[in-house]
């Protein structure tokens, strides 16, 4: 996949979850652009949480405060809302979050056996992060890839069908960096950024449209 912005390239360089801190300067610009996409600011709450996670690997306290400020909501509303969602982490997680699906289709294909092998390989139980913040292991609900059961995700990228041998290889490849092009750092949802209508107001691009104007016809 071709990345279409310097910002994304920069975010992809991060190779460990950060300890804390707010948005980068570019990140704040992205945040403003995301907010401008929506008829009402608060709609950008989850995209901004993803943005924060893309920068730090998790949603830091500083980012909670900044998001609250940008959207005109309280910090409790930001953290409370974020905590509803499984993908959003309010505490640091590993560089690679491995989510093993154990729902019905995967279970029928041996998902619990796979999860057990994963726990053994990584030396942590599901729900835990290893001590050097490398791997976090999760037991996931159906990931929507049941044709490749049992399947798993690493930082929301799919692998499957898996068994204990292919799992071992996956870990080796992740650790060696062999999968760097496939698996971005945790939290980077999309390596492609929207270009149109983000800056609609100051571009005459044929395809651009002012989203506010559009919202009101």
């Amino acid at each position: 996949m071709k990345h279409n912005s310097d910002y994304i390239d920069k975010v992809l360089e991060r190779n460990a979850p950060s300890a804390g801190g707010g948005f980068s300067e570019e990140g704040l610009k992205r945040a403003e652009a995301l907010i401008a996409l929506y008829p009402k600011k608060r709609s950008a709450l989850i995209p901004l949480c993803h943005l924060a996670q893309g920068e730090h690997g998790w949603i830091t306290e500083e980012c909670i405060e900044e998001i609250a400020g940008l959207l005109g909501v309280s910090p409790a509303e930001v953290s409370g809302t974020a905590s509803f969602y499984d993908m959003l982490h309010l505490e640091p997680v590993g560089q690679y979050v491995i989510s093993v699906c154990t729902n019905i289709a995967c279970m029928l294909a041996g998902a619990y056996e796979l999860l057990e092998a994963a726990e053994e390989k990584l030396g942590i139980a599901a729900g835990q992060t290893d001590t050097d913040m490398r791997f976090t292991l999760e037991e996931a609900e159906c990931l929507g890839a049941c044709d490749t059961a049992p399947c798993l995700q690493v930082n929301s990228r799919f692998f499957g069908p898996m068994n204990s041998a292919s799992f071992d290889k996956l870990i080796t490849d992740l650790a060696s960096g062999a999968l760097a092009g496939v698996v971005p750092p945790h939290g980077v949802l999309s390596r492609v950024e929207r270009v149109f209508a983000l800056t609609a107001k100051d571009t005459d691009d044929a395809g651009a449209i002012d989203s506010k104007e559009a919202g009101q016809k």
Binding site: M1, N4, H50, Y85, M87, S99, L143, G144, Q153, N155, S156, R157, F158, L189, S190, R191, V192, E193, R194, V195, F196, A197, D205, A206, G207, A208
Partner: peptide, 21 residues
Amino acid sequence: GEFALGIERLTAACNEAYGHN
């Protein structure tokens, strides 16, 4: 959200579609 690759491709397609009018 878990369909990250889908989001990437759809975003890219969306960019293309804007460009294509």
